[in-house]
Design a protein around this nucleic acid. Structure first.
Length: 468
RNA sequence: UCCCCGAUAGCUCAGCCGGUAGAGCAAGUGGCUGUUAACCACUGGGUCGUUGGUUCGAGUCCGACUCGGGGAGCCA
């Protein structure tokens, strides 16, 4: 019985002949009754954006007992005949010969997902049921399509996927606050004779954390496989409460040997253009929904992006632009200061109107591993700033010269000993190399126009919230 | 963590100068119709986030707390 069923996607895509018998399974969205002796059911199974219209005639043996009591959320299996729809709104429909109630809705009055509009805030409270909504269904399908496109892009460009570890004992990744991983009994912590917590007794024999970046590991493998990328979950423990921040999110980090900053800027541009094209091709139904209900500009924005070259600015130029801007900024702009959100927004949203690459930042505001430029003042870093989402990509050419890297580590007061394995990469066959990190959910936000990153991942983890 | 805003029916919201609560949708019943978030009528549904205070009287005013949102910082 189950094996006969087809997805609604297959039915609506025209893969079945008119008059064919079909079996579909899904959840009822709406029911409308007609005294002409039929009921209309909109049934969705999530395989595509559009629901399938089912015609349920009152001659069905369970019409009175079951069909007339179907409400939003009921799970049904429908057997029927595929036919052309005489009314507007859908090309095909199914004339049901059997409707089986698989899962009832216990109390229709309290079923949280009504066919009416719900706010995204409300849906977050029902993250376990929100996958049945148009919005979250569309987000999830686009997300899957995007993930696959990313793997495909790298695969086709000779990059090897590298699953870097999620648990790390390296507390020097420097990219953010870390979540501790421990098996110690927090109520009875072992102490050293000096009174410190004795991590030698912890599971890994030293302090361990969830990764904030796979970059350092990726650099290691780029020194052997030339082109690698990570794509996996990443954890940041900042007490950050904004529409752009998740405690657990996904990041893509390509790392390329024998490459400089401009080459990875080009790689970033090609990557974005490729994946945007794929999403537009593979998910026109969902993107049309976003355009109608979420962000009228989302498709136009991607189209425009695909056909325009990246705008590159040097940090120094960006500062000059900001100084000349007529807009009043809360925080003054001067060379050497990090760009504030309002500055990034001005550059991406007003000055350029789409993502912009800012390169060569002052060394003081960037990480130790970024390659020192010849001016001795700036490092070969780049950020891609997207309107509405802020920094979606951050990358750099890495310092491949042993002496220069050691100097930076010491200058910043970091412990050379902790970086021994990382320094080894500079001792044995070091080459110029570069890479960047893409915030996957931020990218989703740019594509779909969905404003809050918490609606772009299935079960968002944020400060004070790890439900479900 | 900081600043601002909010919390009233299952959902989205209204509720004016303090006088014990209202709409639309959803649900139930009936009517009508190859319908498209259908439509029409009726019905049920609320200790107004929690807690303390002011007051004869608090959804309304004040304090604290909890949760949510926007922004900042942090970050991708």
């Amino acid at each position: 019985m189950l094996s006969q069923a087809v997805s609604i996607l297959e039915v609506l895509a025209g893969k079945m002949a008119m008059g064919a018998e079909v079996v579909v399974q899904g959840w009822v969205r709406t029911r409308r009754d007609s005294k002409a002796g039929i009921s209309f059911l909109a049934v969705t199974d999530g395989s595509c954006f559009h629901p399938l219209q089912i015609i349920a005639p009152n001659t069905l043996p369970n019409y009175e007992s079951t069909v007339l009591h179907l409400t939003a959320g009921c799970a049904v299996r429908v057997t029927g005949t595929l036919s052309a729809s005489p009314a507007k709104g859908q090309a095909v429909e199914v004339q049901a010969t059997d409707i089986e109630l698989i899962g009832d809705v216990e109390n229709p009055e309290t079923y949280p997902i009504s066919p009416k509009h719900h706010t995204v805030e409300y849906l977050r409270e029902y993250a376990h049921l929100r996958s049945r909504t148009n919005l979250i269904g569309a987000v999830t399908r686009v997300r899957a399509s995007l993930s696959y496109a990313i793997h495909r892009f790298f695969h086709e460009h000779g990059f090897y996927w590298l699953p870097t570890p999620i648990i790390t004992t390296s507390d020097c990744e420097g990219a953010g606050q870390m979540f501790r991983v421990t098996t110690l009994d927090l109520a009875h912590l072992p102490k050293t004779p000096e009174g410190q917590i004795d991590y030698a007794q912890d599971y890994f024999g030293k302090e361990s954390f969830l990764t904030v970046s796979g970059q350092l590991n990726a650099e290691s493998y780029a020194m052997g496989l030339s082109k690698v990328y990570t794509f996996g979950p990443t954890f940041r423990a900042e007490n950050s409460n904004t529409s752009r921040h998740l405690s657990e999110f996904w990041m893509i980090e390509p790392e390329m040997a024998f490459a400089d900053l401009n080459q990875i800027a080009e790689l970033a541009e090609n990557l974005l253009k490729f994946i945007f094209k794929v999403v537009l091709q593979e998910r026109p139904d969902d993107m049309t929904f976003f355009e109608k209900q979420v962000d009228a500009k989302c498709i136009e924005r991607l189209d425009h992006f695909i056909h325009e070259p990246f705008v590159h600015l040097d940090y120094t130029e960006a500062v000059e632009i900001l100084l000349k801007a007529k807009k009043k900024f809360e925080f003054p702009v001067h060379w050497g200061a990090d760009l504030q959100s309002e500055h990034e927004r001005y550059l991406a949203e007003e000055y350029v109107g789409r993502p912009v690459v800012v390169k060569n930042y002052p060394k003081e505001i960037k990480a130790f591993y970024m390659r020192m430029n010849d001016d001795g003042k700036t490092v070969a870093a780049m950020d891609v700033l997207a309107p509405g989402m802020g920094e979606i990509i951050g990358g750099s050419q890495r310092e491949e010269r042993l002496a220069a890297l050691e100097k930076r580590i010491v200058e910043l007061g970091l412990d050379l000993k902790s970086y021994e394995w990382y320094l080894d990469l500079r001792r044995y066959g070091s080459v110029p190399h570069a890479g960047f990190g893409v915030g996957f959910e931020r990218l989703m936000g740019y594509i779909t126009g969905v404003a809050n990153i918490r609606d772009l991942i299935p079960f968002p983890r944020t400060p004070k919230n790890a439900r479900f």
